[in-house]
């Protein structure tokens, strides 16, 4: 028997001075292999053309459809209704700027954070368009790729108690991004330069190890491992010069 699903969806349009934040209920019949992406599109087509939400790839690649699904951040296109109870509550991701209903602007946040950590390869080499591209060891390329799989959906940030309390906290995705450049042999930044970026209370030392980021990341990034290694690496970077040589450690990511 197909279920009738009841949806409670957050509604608010900041552009409209008459709009007040409220929850609106919808019912819809469940179909086979239904995702929340399908639900939202059907709701907009069949019941309420004013409903705002984001998506583009519908395949867990663009990261646009992040929202709070029954209390937990996740990707709408990645979430099947059959894994959810009959009553489903959808809220926009906290922390990010609300555009309307379920749509938030993650771009501004990510841009600001990436600017803080200077999210690009720092190199003094002058680019030669005629030369062959430098080769990279396959294992290194794979390690970088593993962290590069982040789709910037913002779910890890929205789930993080530290990020909720303190808006200057870099968050798991940004720290993961720094780790990605640490792995990249083309980036010539020194440990000291990385320390200046993340060796702070806004960076890795602000993380309280709640691991909500790990538990919600829809791409299953190894955030727990990355955060642990970053903390160790930065902690040792700060004390290596005062430790006796047998205690010194150079942590590899």
């Amino acid at each position: 028997m197909a279920r009738m699903l009841k949806f409670n969806i957050f509604r608010y349009n900041p552009q409209d001075p008459n709009s007040v934040p409220h929850m609106q209920a919808y019912t819809i019949d469940e179909t086979e292999s239904m995702t929340l992406f399908i639900v939202l599109n059907r709701l907009r087509e069949e019941q309420d053309p004013s409903l705002q939400f984001d998506f583009s790839c519908r395949a867990g690649i663009c990261g646009a459809c992040g929202m709070v699904i029954n209390g937990r951040p996740g990707l709408a296109c990645h979430t099947k209704t059959k894994d959810l109870p009959e009553e489903i509550t959808l809220m926009p991701l906290p922390i990010f700027k609300l555009m309307g209903d379920l749509s938030v602007d993650t771009g501004t946040w990510f841009r600001a954070m990436y600017k803080k950590i200077e999210s690009w390869c720092h190199t003094k080499k002058v680019f030669d368009p005629a030369a062959q591209e430098e080769r990279m060891d396959n294992a290194v390329a794979e390690a970088i790729y593993e962290l590069d799989r982040c789709v910037e959906c913002g779910c890890c940030v929205a789930a993080c108690g530290t990020a909720l309390m303190r808006e200057d906290f870099l968050g798991a995705t940004t720290l993961n991004r720094v780790a990605r450049f640490m792995l990249d042999p083309r980036d010539e930044r020194t440990e000291k330069e990385y320390f200046d970026i993340i060796g702070t209370d806004e960076g890795i030392f602000g993380c309280m190890g709640l691991l909500a980021c790990q538990d919600v990341c829809p791409k299953y990034l190894p955030l727990q491992d990355v955060l642990g290694k970053l903390r160790k690496k930065m902690a040792f970077a700060a004390v290596n010069n005062i430790l006796p040589s047998f205690l010194r450690k150079d942590i590899k990511l």
């Binding site: 709070v68 209390g71 937990r72 789930a159 909720l164 909500a212």
Partner: peptide
């Protein structure tokens, strides 16, 4: 305000590790 955020987050997410904190 921050205390409420933290509590609301733990409740909303039903997340053990946040509760542990």
């Amino acid at each position: 305000g921050q205390q409420r955020l933290m509590l609301a987050n733990a409740k909303r997410m039903r997340h053990t590790d946040t509760w542990l904190w």
